[in-house]
Structures are given as C-alpha cells and as structure tokens.
Design a protein around this nucleic acid. Sequence first.
DNA 1: TTATGTTAGTTGTTTGAACAATGATTCTTA
DNA 2: TAAGAATCATTGTTCAAACAACTAACATAA
Lengths: 149, 149
Amino acid sequence: MKIEEEIKQSTFKSEYQKAHINLIYTSGWVQQAQAALFKPFGVTLPQYNVLRILRGQYPKPATISLLIERMLDKTSNASRIVDKLEAKELVTRKQCPADRRTVDVLITEKGLALLKEMDELESGEGTGITNLTEQEAEQLSDLLDKIRK
Amino acid sequence: MKIEEEIKQSTFKSEYQKAHINLIYTSGWVQQAQAALFKPFGVTLPQYNVLRILRGQYPKPATISLLIERMLDKTSNASRIVDKLEAKELVTRKQCPADRRTVDVLITEKGLALLKEMDELESGEGTGITNLTEQEAEQLSDLLDKIRK
DNA sequence: TTATGTTAGTTGTTTGAACAATGATTCTTA
DNA sequence: TAAGAATCATTGTTCAAACAACTAACATAA
C-alpha cells in the first residue's frame, strides 16, 4: 500500500520528506515483522546480531568492545546482551589471560546450531522483502547504502 | 558505505538476504539519527507520531483507538504516550460525552507550535536521505511501498 | 617503582516498550 | 429489559534501552 494511504496523509513537502517518512514507517513495519519471526527462537534482534558477529569471528573469541563497535547500538548494552545469551548457554564468557581487563566471548555449539536454524529467516521470507524482484532488491540495497554514506 | 563493509560480511546467500539485512541495519541507523534530532525537542519518535496524527485530525479530536490504529505500534502504549504528551501540555484529554468509554484527545496550541518547529526536520536533512537525488528518493518510496504490500 | 592517565567492562538508575489483565461502558439479542 | 458479549481505555508488571557512574587492569613517564 502506498505510504500516502498508509498514514492517511495525501501530500508531502518533497520527495525527500516522503521517502524519509516512508523509511521510518517501513523500518518499524519490518522490525515488527522481524520480532514476530524471532519470537519462537527466544532471542531478540540485538541478541541475534551479537550472535551473528560471534559466528563471524568463530572460532576466535570476540571482546565486548568489538561487539559494541560492530553493533551500531553503540551505547553499550553489550554486557547485558551477553548476559542474556550466556544465561541461555548460547555463548561463553571468560576473562582473557593476556589482558585481564578484557573478556573473551565465544559462541557455543548450541549458539551455532540456533543460528543455523535461524538462517532460514534471513532469506527475507516473511518480512515482505520477497515482494521485490531480485533486481529491485539489489536497487534497494544500493539506495540504502547511499543513505548511510 | 556498502553494507558488506559495514557489517564485515563479504557474501550473502541472495540479493534478498542482502537487502533484508541492509534494511534492518539502515532502519536502525536512521532511527538513531532520528532520535538524536528529536532529543532537543523533548519528544520521542512515538510521541511525535501521535502528535502528527492529532494534527491531521485537527480541529477534530481523536480517540485512543484511532491513535492505535494509525500508530503501527499496535500494542497499546497509546494511553501512556498520551499521558506523557498531556504532562507536557501538548495535548488535552477529556471524556467524550457521546460515548463515555472513549476519550477525546486534542492537540493544543503548544503542540501545534512544537510540530511547526519540528517540520524542518522532516525534510530528511540530517538523516542521510538527502544523499539521494530526488528521483532516487522516489524510487526508494516505491520499493518500500512494495515491501509492505 | 610509583603516580597519572587510559581503557575495558560492569552495574545503577531512570525511562520507555511489550504484554496481559482489569474495570467501565455500550451493544446485542433473547 | 435483562444477560452476556464486545469494545474502550487504563493500569500492573516484566523486560529492554539510554545514560552515567564506577571498578579493575594496563600503559606511560617521571
């Protein structure tokens, strides 16, 4: 549905304003769809992202700093997110011997298995992205990249 | 920056997966930029959205249900968001005489004035959307509309 | 080596979000 | 019109996010 109908506003000041509001709106829309997909697996989006980063590092461990750096939510709830993941036995945390200030966070077999299950989700199925053609998906990526420049 | 570099993942299973992850990522990115812009005005994104809806209705009042319906966060924090707005004197709330179950929520002069100030923000300035050409912005809107179909 | 500063991570605290349950009013229909 | 169902809004409660303060460990330099 066109954004105009969606939010019952027929005119915008510019294409920029329209795209901007559309992005905010769709962003919320997708995040909700995402959350619904995630719920059965018992992890939130930030937790999932941390798991993904850890898999990227595997079998090397990651420090909390590295997680924060990659997480985009630069505000450091990283410690607490790792708390949650640790409680679910999806990661382990142990002090690094070389630098005792830092912590080695490592994804467990259980964590890897969960991610493997969840890989199916990443296809975009269920979040509307597959309403696009492959070429359009590519176009979208390019536009988004440009926004974050 | 390309999403591959942004999240340090060089390959994706498909253009869909790539666009999907890119959308989630960019969505968070934009929301953060947005929150930063909003902070000086003392309202959060959901509060702002409610104010926008109320302005759309003005001078008619809106019920809480109508707010929920338009808000996309269908989970009803609407009451509490209105609480916050009322505390800041940006809206008024009074029981509707015709149906005493419902509440008439109305934006105040102060609320309208605040929105007027904030209209500047909606141009997209400061959230990266203006990195696009006008035509690209239009293209983006179309793609997003298609996703939510 | 010891004082100073820096970095890493954790822990409070306040604030808002998510979800469910409740209470009040209206609608429906027998 | 009286009883049960449905609707509207509010209120608990739990959970996560934002921001700042704090502790421990390392680095630097006098």
